[in-house]
Design a protein around this nucleic acid. Structure first.
Lengths: 345, 345
DNA sequence: TTGTATGCGTTATCAG
DNA sequence: CTGATAACGCATACAA
C-alpha cells in the first residue's frame, strides 16, 4: 500500500455502466462516440478526479512525447537560455523536457544518454562535454531510431542534425573589428582544441590576421585559457612578453575576458587605449563592467527555439529518411567600450 | 512503420530459448537465476543492442523515478542554480528530472502541474508564479498522492513540505547593516506583496527600522520595483523627494539594485558615500559593478541539493504519513563596496 | 455508437 | 533455478 490506487478508465466505466473503451474514446475526444455519453464521461472523470496515466498511454501508443536534453551545465547562461528557448516551443506542442547535465564529464554524458534511450524519448538534444571520448553513445541513439540533434559543441564526423553558430565567421569579424580599431598585436585565448567551437574560433582569428597581412605569432596564442582564472594567468604571461599584445581576444568566453580586464585594471593598463579586450557569449555582466566588454552574442534563447522547431518541422512531419541538416546561425558582434579607441592610430 | 521495433526481452528469450521472465530476472540481477545464464543473457543483450523500456517497466512497477520541477523561469540565475543542485543529487539516485517553466503565468503553471501528474512523477518541486490564482492544482497534487515540495515562493497556507530562505532575517540584517554604516533614511524597493518572499523581506525591513528607533516612512517604500527598469524609475522618484533617501534597499533583486546604481551614476551621485545600495540574490554581476554591490546570497545550488535530499531522506524512507516539514535556510549578507562608507557619520 | 478482445514491454506470482 | 501466466492502464481493430 505504498502508493494508493488512482482512478482509471475502468473505474469510470464501472460507475457509468460503460465499457472502458468507450470511456477511453470519450476522453480522447474521438468522433465515434455519442455527444451525450462524452459529456457524461467528462463530467464524472472530473468528479472522480481522474488523470490519465501517461506511461500507460505512451506505452500503448508506442511513442513518448518527450525530448531529452543533455548539456554540460544547466546553470550556465548560454545553456539555461537554450533550455528556456526549447521549453517555450516544446510546451506549446505538449512535449515534456527531461534535462540532464554532464558536468563536462564523458562518463556522465553516456549515462544520461542511456537513461534517455530507456525512456524512449522522441528526440535527444545534446551539446557534448569538454571531456571527450568515443561517440558510441551517440551512435546508440541513432541505432535506437531516436532523433538526435547536436548543437553548439558537436561531433562533426557524426551524421546528425546540427544547429551551430558560425563561430569562425563571428571570430573573423571580431578580430577584423580589432584590426580596424588600430590594434596591431592581437593575442588569442583559446579553448580546448578537440572541441569544434574552439577550433573554429581559432580559424576565424587566423583568417582575419592573414586577410589583413598580419603575421601569425605563436607567442600570442594561449591554449586552455577558458575560465576567468586561466584567462588572468594567460594575460599576465602575455603582458610580460618583450613585445606584449595591444589587444586580447578571449575567444573562449566572457569569463576569461573578465579575467583579462581584471588583470589590466590591477596593473593600471588603460582599456581600451592601451589594451583592447573582446570576449565571447554576451554574458549579462559584459554590459556593466567598466569599461563594458565587446563580445559576441549567440542569440541563445532563439537558438533554443530554432532547435526545437527543427525537430517539429523537419523530423516529425517527414517521417524518417530525412537528410540530416546543418543549421548555422550567424552570431552578432556587440561592440562596446573595451575595444573602442578614442585615439585611432 | 513509423517507429521501428526495438529489441525486447522476448527477442532475447527467443534467441536463447529461454522464457521472458528469466531474461527479465537476469537483467535485473535477481539472485534467483543461474550465474551462467545471467552472464549469457547480459552478453546477448549487449549484442542485440537491448535497452530496457522504462515506460513499460515503470508502469508495471507502479512508480516512476522521476521528479517534476516547475519554476517561473529556467534561465534565471537563482532557478537554474536550484535545478543544477537538484540534478546533482537526483542523478546519483537514478532519478530523472522533468523541467517546466511557468513564465510567471498561473494558467501555465496549472498546465505544467497537470502534465506532471499525468506522468505519475514521484514528486513535484515548485516555486510559484508571480501571477497568483487559486491553489487547486497544488491540492490536486496532494490528492493524487504525489509528494509536493514548495521552495522559495510558497503558498504558506498549504500544508506541504517547504524549503525557504529566512528572508525576513536576511532583510533585517541587510537593513541593520545599512543603519550601522550610518545611513539615516533607508528606502525600500518592494516586490508584489502577494508573494511570501517579498512580504517577508518587507517585514525584515520594518523590524530593523523599529529595532533602531527609526521612523517608518511610507514615502520611502516603493511597490513593484522588481526589475532593473522599474528599479530605475522608482529611484528617480525617490531622489526627487524633498528629503531623498541616503540608502536604497532593493529587496526584490539585484537587477533592481542595478537600476538604482545606474541612475545614481547618471546623476553623479556618489555610491556609497551619498547613497548606499543593497540588492538581493548575489547575481554574479554584483561582484563586478563599480562599485560592487552589497547583496544577499541564497546558496541556490546547495538549496537545490537540500530540496532533493529532503525528498529522498524524509519522504522516500518513511512512507506516507510524514508530517510536512519546513526547512529554513539562513541566507548570507555579502557586504561589498556599495554600502561601505569611508566617512561613517 | 458501443462493447469485446488483444497487446504495448515489463515484472511479479505461482508452479514446476 | 526456470517457465507459464497475469496484470499494470490504456488504445485500437474488430465485431455487434
Amino acid at each position: 500500500m505504498k502508493r494508493q490506487k488512482r482512478t482509471t478508465i475502468y473505474d469510470i466505466a464501472q460507475r457509468l455502466n460503460l465499457a472502458a473503451s468507450s470511456v477511453s474514446r470519450a476522453l480522447s475526444d474521438s468522433p465515434k462516440v455519442n455527444a451525450a455519453t462524452k459529456a457524461l464521461v467528462l463530467k464524472t472523470a472530473l468528479e472522480m478526479n481522474y488523470q490519465q496515466n501517461a506511461m500507460a498511454s505512451n506505452l500503448r501508443k508506442g511513442n513518448n512525447p518527450t525530448i531529452g536534453v543533455v548539456v554540460p551545465r544547466i546553470n550556465q547562461n548560454f545553456f539555461s537560455n537554450i533550455i528556456a528557448g526549447l521549453e517555450e516551443v516544446t510546451y506549446k506542442k505538449g512535449y515534456n523536457l527531461i534535462i540532464c547535465q554532464s558536468n563536462e564529464l564523458h562518463a556522465r554524458e553516456v549515462d544520461c544518454v542511456n537513461a534517455l534511450i530507456n525512456q524512449h524519448v522522441s528526440c535527444i538534444i545534446i551539446s557534448i562535454a569538454a571531456e571527450t571520448g568515443d561517440h558510441n553513445h551517440l551512435q546508440q541513439v541513432l541505432d535506437h531510431h531516436i532523433r538526435l540533434i547536436q548543437f553548439d559543441r558537436v561531433v562533426e564526423e557524426l551524421d546528425t542534425f546540427k544547429v551551430i553558430n558560425d563561430n569562425e565567421r563571428a571570430s573573423f569579424e571580431a578580430v577584423t573589428h580589432l584590426i580596424e580599431q588600430g590594434y596591431k598585436r592581437i593575442a588569442l585565448l583559446e579553448g580546448p582544441q578537440d572541441i569544434n567551437i574552439f577550433r573554429q574560433r581559432k580559424e576565424g582569428y587566423l583568417a582575419a590576421l592573414k586577410n589583413n597581412g598580419f603575421p601569425i605569432l605563436e607567442e600570442l596564442m594561449c591554449e586552455n585559457a577558458w575560465t576567468k582564472e586561466l584567462g588572468a594567468v594567460a594575460t599576465v604571461q602575455l603582458l610580460n612578453l618583450p613585445e606584449p599584445p595591444d589587444a586580447i581576444f578571449a575567444s573562449t568566453s566572457d569569463f576569461s575576458a573578465l579575467g583579462v580586464l581584471e588583470v589590466a585594471t590591477d596593473k593600471g593598463i588603460s582599456v581600451p587605449d592601451a589594451l583592447g579586450i573582446c570576449g565571447y557569449s554576451n554574458e549579462p555582466f559584459t554590459e556593466i563592467t567598466s569599461p563594458s566588454i565587446t563580445t559576441v552574442d549567440q542569440y541563445s534563447v532563439s537558438m533554443g527555439k530554432t532547435i526545437a522547431n527543427l525537430f517539429f518541422q523537419e523530423m516529425e512531419v517527414f517521417e524518417h529518411s530525412v537528410e540530416p541538416k546543418i543549421v548555422s546561425i550567424k552570431p552578432k558582434l556587440i561592440v562596446r567600450k573595451s575595444t573602442q579607441r578614442k585615439i585611432s592610430s
